[in-house]
C-alpha cells in the first residue's frame, strides 16, 4: 500500500466524509458485501487468499465464526474482468468489549499481490468502518505485525493510533501493535468488566482461556 501516492493527504481539500476521501474505484474492480449465500463461491477463495501468508492455517471454524455472525461486515473486492474472482477481502466483527464499549474488530485483511497499490485495502477497511459507525460502534481495534509497516501506514492514515506493543504475539515469535480508533468521546472512560488496560500481570494460569491473550488477540495478521 505504500505506493498509494495518489492518496496522499491533501490538507487543503475540504472533504465532507472521510469515506469519499479514502474509497477508490480502480477500473475492473467492484466491491461486494459478503452474505451467506456467497459462501460456496467466495469462502474457498477467501481462505486461500488469507492463508497464503500464514505459516499455520486457520480452521474453517474461524472463518465461519466471523462470517456467520457478521457477514455484512465482510467486504470483498472482485475482479470484474476475470469472472469476479476475489482480489481483496476484509473480515470483521462488532460486539461489546468486556461488557464495555461496542468494539469493532478488523480480524483479517488481504489483497492479492497483483492488485496491491491501488487503494483496494484502504477502500475495504473504509467500507467496514462506515458500516461499524452506522451500527453505533464506539471504537475499532486490530493488531498488526510489527514488521508490517504498510498496514500500519494504511491504518494510521485512517486515524488509528498504536495503543500498545504486544511482545512475541504471533506464533512465529514476532511482536505486534494493537491499533485503536475511537469513534466517540468518552470511550476511554467507559467501564469494562476488567480494568481499562485489561492485562494485569498474572502468571501460572492453567486455564488456557485465561491466558494473557484475549481470544481475539490471535487474529488480525493484516496482510496488505
Amino acid at each position: 500500500m505504500s505506493s498509494d501516492a495518489s492518496l496522499a493527504p491533501n490538507p487543503q481539500s475540504k472533504v465532507e466524509s472521510p469515506s469519499t476521501y479514502f474509497q477508490t474505484h480502480p477500473p475492473g474492480i467492484s466491491y461486494l458485501q459478503y452474505s451467506l449465500e456467497k459462501e460456496s463461491e467466495y469462502l474457498p477463495q477467501i481462505r486461500e487468499l488469507i492463508s497464503k501468508d500464514l505459516s499455520e492455517p486457520y480452521s474453517i471454524y474461524v472463518y465461519r465464526y466471523f462470517l456467520y455472525q457478521w457477514a455484512e461486515l465482510c467486504f470483498m473486492a472482485v475482479d470484474t474482468t476475470d469472472n469476479n474472482k476475489l482480489a481483496g477481502v476484509v473480515i470483521c466483527k462488532l460486539e461489546p468489549h468486556r461488557g464495555g464499549p461496542l468494539r469493532g474488530y478488523i480480524a483479517m485483511l488481504a489483497t492479492k499481490d497483483n492488485f496491491r497499490g491501488k487503494g483496494i485495502a484502504t477502500t475495504l477497511v473504509s467500507k467496514a468502518i462506515d458500516l461499524m459507525i452506522e451500527k453505533d460502534a464506539d471504537e475499532i481495534a486490530l493488531e498488526t505485525e510489527e514488521t508490517n509497516t504498510a498496514a500500519m501506514k494504511l491504518y494510521e492514515r485512517l486515524g488509528f493510533l498504536r495503543s500498545k506493543k504486544l511482545h512475541r504475539y504471533y506464533l512465529n515469535g514476532n511482536s505486534a501493535y494493537r491499533l485503536l480508533l475511537y469513534l466517540k468521546e468518552g470511550v476511554g472512560t467507559m467501564p469494562t468488566e476488567q480494568d481499562q488496560y485489561g492485562d494485569v500481570p498474572v502468571h501460572g494460569q492453567d486455564d488456557p482461556r485465561y491466558q494473557h491473550r484475549n481470544s481475539e488477540d490471535i487474529f488480525s495478521q493484516g496482510i496488505v
Binding site: P9, V15, P18, G159, S163, L181, Y182, L183, E185, V187
Partner: peptide, 19 residues
C-alpha cells in the same frame, strides 16, 4: 502533519493517546 481527513477527530485521538 496529522492525517486529515481521518475517521478520528483530534479530540478523539488526544483522548486515546492520553488515556
Amino acid at each position: 502533519t496529522n492525517p486529515n481527513p481521518a475517521y478520528a477527530s483530534e479530540l478523539l485521538r488526544y483522548e486515546l493517546r492520553m488515556r
